[in-house]
Amino acid sequence: MAPLSLLFGGPAEVGRLGWQDEALCAQTDPEAFFPEKGGSTREAKRVCTTCDVRSECLEYALENDERFGIWGGLSERERRKLKKRAV
Rank of each mutant, 00 (worst) to 15 (best):
M1E: 01
M1A: 04
A2T: 02
S5P: 00
L6V: 06
L6W: 00
L7F: 00
F8D: 00
G9S: 01
A12M: 07
E13Q: 12
V14H: 01
R16P: 02
R16S: 07
G18W: 04
W19C: 06
W19S: 05
D21I: 04
L24Q: 13
L24I: 13
A26G: 14
A26T: 14
A26H: 07
P30K: 07
P30D: 02
E31S: 14
F33E: 05
P35Q: 07
E36P: 13
K37I: 15
G38N: 12
G38T: 12
G39N: 11
G39L: 12
R42I: 11
R42V: 13
E43Q: 14
E43S: 12
E43M: 09
K45C: 05
K45G: 08
R46M: 11
C48H: 08
V53S: 10
S55M: 13
E56W: 05
E56K: 15
L58F: 09
E59A: 15
E63A: 15
E63N: 15
D65I: 07
E66N: 05
R67E: 10
G69K: 07
G69S: 04
G69P: 03
G72S: 03
G72F: 05
G72Y: 02
G72N: 04
G73A: 07
G73I: 09
R77F: 02
R77V: 12
R77M: 02
R77W: 04
R77P: 00
R77H: 09
E78W: 06
R80Y: 05
K81G: 10
K83C: 03
V87N: 00
